[in-house]
Simulated assay, not measured.
Amino acid sequence: MEAITTPQFSALTTGSKSIGRSENIAMVALNFNRRGRKDCVITISRKPNIQSRSFHLGLPHSCNHSQAPLLESGDCYTSFDEDWLLKNKAQEVASCLNGRSIFLVGMMGSGKTTVGRILSEALGYCFVDSDRYVEQAMGTSVTQIFELRGESFFRDHESEALQKLSFAPRKVVATGGGAVVRPVNWKYMRQGITVFLDVPLDALARRIAAVGTDSRPLLHFESGDAYTKAFVGLFTLTKKRSEAYANADATVSLLHLATNLRLEDVSDITPTVIAIEVLAQIEKFLRGNNGKSLRIYPY
């Protein structure tokens, strides 16, 4: 018999739209062999049907002994929810970040603002939306800036905003979708960690169509239904930006995440689960085989 403690997760790709709801139960099964912890199986069960799915998490940390109750079997089960996972992962990654800011990049509608707010709260960081930052500085909306002064004028002020934000530690910055097109912006964003939220075009178009394209100056065409306008516009923009997005330090692919979670639609992935995956990918980037940071930052 062995005594064990609740583990600290070192790698994570898990989640479900049902985790954290009162009618659901999330269980962790920690399997052990003679050398200590082997893996972690997460089972999501929903009452009253008790249908479940399981996901595997790598847990390389060794099993620690404590005064916890002894187990007669080799498995330990503990319940948790999305918030618990997020808090745990944030605590792990914070020690690696050392105050470095996080810059989220991706197409409009990819969830940068929503996920960014969740990340900032979990890490104890400040959240900044670069578009709102420019709007406050200019005293008008992005849409009006595009209409009255043009895209180039907006991009100039966007670059100024990113330059200022690059000097500020402990921030999560949701950048505009086109911020990646100017090489100088990468110089600023690389003062922190850049993460690309990769969302399929169909999902992006559905999200934008649901709220309309009026506030999206690059998608505001004269004719066509909202979904068609959004999809065609996004397709064109993606061809121009895809190589630039690939420059990000880390990428979170919602399509891959949905596949791993056995979800049919990426829209079923909650923002909290995406935030957890962002932290996991950041940690993966920052840590080499020896556990040290891959590059040096000024903070």
Rank of each mutant, 00 (worst) to 15 (best):
S166R: 11
S166D: 15
S166H: 12
S166K: 12
S166A: 15
F167A: 10
F167V: 10
F167I: 12
A168C: 14
A168F: 14
A168T: 15
R170I: 07
R170M: 11
R170N: 13
K171W: 05
V172H: 02
V172P: 00
V172Y: 07
V173A: 06
V173T: 06
V173Y: 03
A174T: 11
A174M: 10
T175K: 04
G176F: 03
G176A: 12
G177R: 00
G177L: 09
G177Y: 01
G177M: 04
G178L: 00
G178Y: 02
G178S: 04
G178K: 03
G178N: 04
A179P: 08
V180I: 15
V181K: 05
V181N: 03
V181M: 10
V181Y: 02
R182I: 10
R182K: 15
P183C: 09
P183G: 09
P183K: 13
P183V: 10
P183I: 08
V184K: 11
V184T: 09
N185C: 10
N185R: 04
N185S: 09
W186E: 10
K187F: 05
Y188N: 13
Y188P: 07
Y188S: 15
Y188R: 05
Y188A: 13
M189Y: 05
Q191G: 05
Q191W: 02
Q191E: 14
G192S: 06
G192C: 05
I193K: 03
I193G: 03
T194A: 10
T194M: 07
V195N: 01
V195H: 01
F196S: 06
L197Q: 07
L197P: 14
L197I: 13
L197H: 11
L197R: 06
L197C: 13
D198P: 02
D198K: 03
D198C: 04
V199C: 10
V199Q: 02
P200W: 02
P200L: 04
D202H: 09
D202I: 01
A203F: 01
A203P: 08
A203L: 05
A203V: 14
L204Y: 00
L204C: 00
L204I: 00
A205S: 12
